[in-house]
Design a protein around this nucleic acid. Sequence first.
DNA 1: TATATACTTGAGTGATCGCTCAAGAAATAC
DNA 2: GTATTTCTTGAGCGATCACTCAAGTATATA
Lengths: 190, 190
Amino acid sequence: MPRKPAYDRDALIAQARDIFWRHGWAGTSLKDLERELKLKPGSFYAAFGSKDALYAMALERYTQDGVARLTALAEDIGPLAALKTQPQIVIDSSQTPVQACMLAKTFAELQARDHQLAQKASRHMAEMKQCFATLFRQAQQAREIGPDHDPERLAARYQSDLLGLRLSAERSDVNAKEIAADIAADLDQL
Amino acid sequence: MPRKPAYDRDALIAQARDIFWRHGWAGTSLKDLERELKLKPGSFYAAFGSKDALYAMALERYTQDGVARLTALAEDIGPLAALKTQPQIVIDSSQTPVQACMLAKTFAELQARDHQLAQKASRHMAEMKQCFATLFRQAQQAREIGPDHDPERLAARYQSDLLGLRLSAERSDVNAKEIAADIAADLDQL
DNA sequence: TATATACTTGAGTGATCGCTCAAGAAATAC
DNA sequence: GTATTTCTTGAGCGATCACTCAAGTATATA
């Protein structure tokens, strides 16, 4: 009996993710979303419930894709090689809407207001950090890095460096490739 | 003949800087500013012209203070020591409204919309980077670091690390002191 | 004290915010 | 075909946005 939606829900979430990623939470209005997703307000709310709900879905999608991509890369070329390659990947991927991390942008924007989306972003960043720690641990077990390092600590520093790198990559007066190379080079010192 | 304002303009700019720093550009409303600065709309606009104009003054103040503090520190304890101490300073300064850099937050929030405040923030970050580069150059001339390093490149990496550190320091699941120590330790390898 | 010159006040501007909902259109089941 | 169910549409809700301005108030000089 029912009628099917005229849109591809998954594609719309990915599209919304890119818009939010670019312009942030407050910087993206319902008008923006309606125009880009080609949805009237009624359809929008029937499909996603609210702006915040869609934003949460976008964060989810963003994190899932990120973890999946890095995990796949590590299985391809090994944990340490993946960690060394990641800095260059995240800044030269010209397909990404912006260079800075969406989780970091969300967290920075909404943390002070104690917004639930900031908490969600924080949890997702912890997820990513765990992913890094796992790779460092694997690299250690494979004797690719010294045995005296704490994988959790390496992961925290590495993630911090990546956040800085990706923000720096947005700047026109910074040579991000050099920074990425230097971050990768640091991993050889371990 | 005239009547003097009842407020301390400089103090109000510093107060506005802290509010903007915390909540960002879109996250701070005129109502917020009026309430915190205890100014009615008329006085506000007579004093500062617009929200954006005040934000620009806040950015200016933020940068001036940052450069002055680091420069003074370097004259006290030397360029390399200042660079090594800075990471710990910026994250344990419990007087600061938030840990993340206001220039970085502004840039990240407004860059995609090509807002003039994003450009101003970018210029101020370049200013800070030059400040770092000068210290690295001085450290090199003082034989505190090796002669084969490019001070500009070191400065870019160092600033990137600081941006990451300061954002990480906002997170409850990250030990920022460890990251700060690791950044400082890296400078000994030069 | 008289007057000129600011500063302070707060109601109110049009625009936009996220969001609602009733009515019309379309597709399924029978 | 008809009935039923969902999707689509868009006018419009109250709230808030950055901001204006005329009237009132206080302080300087003369």
